[in-house]
């Protein structure tokens, strides 16, 4: 249930994101989801890709600072109340969400969550019968 998300440190300057995508593109790595968090000087690129271990090696070879981060992914109907319910389940047991992003496929949303306590977040979401995705599910989308 744990998904390895690729996190890349980027300086805020034009062309850097393109370079990351070109490196991955040359090796036919697929991107399921992408999000960027940024400040005025630097940013962190977060990617769900088909082969995170290999993607990490490729980027390291090109001198990028890269790390794999554990995240979880939940599939839910696209109505806002479902997203709200997921967050409520976690906050009720004092698990904080460090960041989250989502995208929709048909009438469903796929939600990525980075939690302060990944193991217990998975347990709690499962006990509320939330539909958790495995890495293999996610990479096929």
């Amino acid at each position: 249930m744990i998904i390895h998300q690729l996190s890349v440190f980027l300086e805020n300057k034009s062309g850097r994101l393109t370079e990351v995508l070109e490196v991955l593109g040359e090796e036919n790595i697929r991107i399921t989801a992408l999000s960027v968090a940024d400040t005025t000087e630097f940013g962190i690129l977060r990617l769900i890709v088909s082969d995170p271990e290999r993607a990490r090696e490729l980027l390291k070879l090109q001198n990028f600072t890269v790390n794999l981060t554990d995240v979880i992914s939940v599939m839910a109907p696209s109505e806002a109340k479902h997203y709200a319910k997921i967050l409520k389940i976690l906050s009720d047991i004092d698990i904080s969400v460090e960041y989250t992003y989502a995208f929709s496929v048909g009438d469903k949303s796929i939600i990525i969550l980075r939690c302060s306590d990944t193991e217990n977040a998975i347990k709690a979401l499962k006990s509320h019968e939330m539909e958790l995705l495995k890495a293999s599910d996610l990479y096929k989308i």
Binding site: Q5, S7, F9, T39, I44, R46, K60, T65, N67
Partner: peptide, 12 residues
């Protein structure tokens, strides 16, 4: 790299 943990707040 060993320190890089993907959190903006940590880098800040």
């Amino acid at each position: 790299e060993a320190f890089f943990q993907d959190k903006i707040s940590q880098l800040e």
